[in-house]
Write a protein that binds this DNA or RNA. Structure first.
Ligand SMILES: [Zn+2]
Ligand SMILES: [Zn+2]
Ligand SMILES: [Zn+2]
Ligand SMILES: [Zn+2]
Lengths: 137, 137
DNA sequence: ACTCGTAATGAAAAAGATTCTCATCTCAAT
DNA sequence: ATTGAGATGAGAATCTTTTTCATTACGAGT
């Protein structure tokens, strides 16, 4: 359960950490900002300081429990790591986020990095477009 | 020359706009933050307000003269558009940025978007890794 | 279960990035 | 040269994230 994941990350099992992890696991929104987490917790009656939310998300990221994305908008969004890597496609009109994984792209990225003498550690691929509900304008 | 590009963008040809565009064309750093632009201009003896730098870069972006990137680091970086699209590979140790363009990846991205009912407008691909000077640790 | 030291938390302040306000100035058309 | 719309600069405001520090809570050892 959650407590074990937190312990494995080398962190003390505290109420804020448990609640934040629970929220990431149960929220319908997979990609949430720190502010989102803070407010969603408030909605659930959990008063956890915003500074703590930032701290814990950063720790979870360092522990590999969550991933941080720099989408457009000036704020980072976080998502729980569910094992399988994926990239994102974001509607520039409504903000809808879909996930995808394309083996060809993944493969070529590794090759491109190697060709340039780099050892790929990570990558960020975000496609921006208009979803089928907003293709018109 | 610069003045025409600015006019074509539907903007008045003002000293700050000319100087900023000149800097983007001549700077050795292709990928610069607003703060970078502000300071590089100061080094050249051009005292242009930071707010103006932000305004002009945003206008240049809207006009398609520059591209804004959301690399890691909490601040946007801008680069002059030189016609050919490219993506980036960044060394996580020293920050070195190299550019690349891979037709296969470009093609697959478009397909992925279409498969999901999206009309791709843009994309952001950043590979993070260690360059050959920093492959060790 | 109780004690205790250390790590974690909350609130507020601080820092960093970007945008806004508004009085003043400048471009460019006449 | 005149003039008016648009642009600029300085500072205030806003937004996101980090830091500070006094207080609190975990959990190892008893
Ligand atoms: Zn949409
Ligand atoms: Zn995702
Ligand atoms: Zn390097
Ligand atoms: Zn570039």
């Amino acid at each position: 359960m959650d407590n074990q994941e937190i312990r494995n990350a080398g962190l003390k099992v505290t109420l804020p950490r448990v609640k934040i992890l629970e929220l990431l696991e149960n929220s319908t929104q997979r990609h949430v900002s720190a502010e989102d987490v803070y407010k969603l917790l408030l909605d659930r009656g959990e008063e956890i300081g915003l500074a703590t939310v930032y701290r814990v998300l950063t720790q979870f990221e360092a522990a590999g429990l969550v991933t941080r994305h720099n989408f457009e908008g000036g704020h980072a969004v976080f998502e729980l790591d569910r094992g399988e890597h994926h990239d994102h496609i974001v509607c520039v009109v409504c903000g809808k986020v879909e996930e995808f994984m394309d083996a060809t792209i993944e493969q070529r990225q590794r090759e491109v990095a190697n060709e340039r003498g780099f050892e790929m550690a990570d990558h960020s691929l975000i496609i921006y477009g208009r979803c089928n509900e907003h293709k018109d304008n």
